[in-house]
Design a protein around this nucleic acid. Structure first.
Lengths: 136, 136
DNA sequence: CAGTATCCCTCATGATACTG
DNA sequence: CAGTATCATGAGGGATACTG
């Protein structure tokens, strides 16, 4: 294992990784976090740990598969922790890690932007879709 | 033909937007902007107008199809403008609108986060993937 | 130069059913 | 409760060829 500190690794990362490059691993990570389920799940975890079923209820319309799949990916990437309480029935809580917390303000901003500007976007679409000579 | 176009119907947006609700249009918009090509294109337009081929070169690995398709979607959503200069050969410039500019800081943050924290994420993955009893 | 038009295929996602 | 397993669908996206 290298003797580098996290800070040193971060500094190196900034220089070495350019998401514009197709071959760059940052591309893959960018695609990973540019995901609506990721955005919604991280936002849902903003106020502390939450249970699996609780998340499923908050994020209406998410399938069990996508919820589990996304949570596993987030856990693997070190953005959330998964803690099992061996009670009966079993209880599982998910919580943001420091790394996940560092991403939270950003995905929160994404979600907020979508909610705030949707009317403008819809207006733009209506205008774009309207036939050329269409009167206002 | 119906008196109302699909676009007009969409334009009749409802007041309460909550991206957590599955039926909410904000969900669709969230998914739209949570896209790696959107993130990369908006970032590439940060410093002013750029030509089609210029964008294609900057965002290495993007196919013509995805570049055109994403630019069209962004134009329709009112995030970028498309201006054609009828020279020979033709010249097309894309530029952020005020609405697009309002999203820029956010997608920039997403891209920067990916580039900055990729080493940590990779470390987390290695740790997650390692067999349980594996020595450090 | 800046696209458009096809073909084609993989993978992401949803629905459903089952389990410790 | 918190998943896992399986199947089916279709949208995402690349490669290629053509055009004003």
């Amino acid at each position: 294992m290298p003797t580098q500190t996290a800070a040193q690794r971060r500094a190196e990362a900034r220089a070495a990784y350019d998401a514009y490059l197709a071959t760059c691993p940052a591309r893959e990570l960018l695609d990973r976090i540019s995901d609506k389920w990721v955005t919604l799940i991280l936002n849902a975890l903003a106020d502390g740990p939450r249970r699996y079923s609780d998340l499923g209820r908050t994020i209406a319309g998410v399938s069990q598969k996508m919820l589990t799949q996304t949570l596993r990916a987030l856990e693997r990437d070190g953005l959330v922790t998964r803690s099992v309480t061996p009670s009966v029935p079993v209880r599982v809580d998910y919580e943001l890690t420091p790394l996940g917390t560092s991403l939270l303000p950003i995905v929160r901003a994404v979600k907020d932007w979508a909610q705030t500007h949707i009317a403008e976007v819809h207006a733009a679409r209506a205008s774009y879709d309207a036939p050329a000579g269409e009167p206002e």
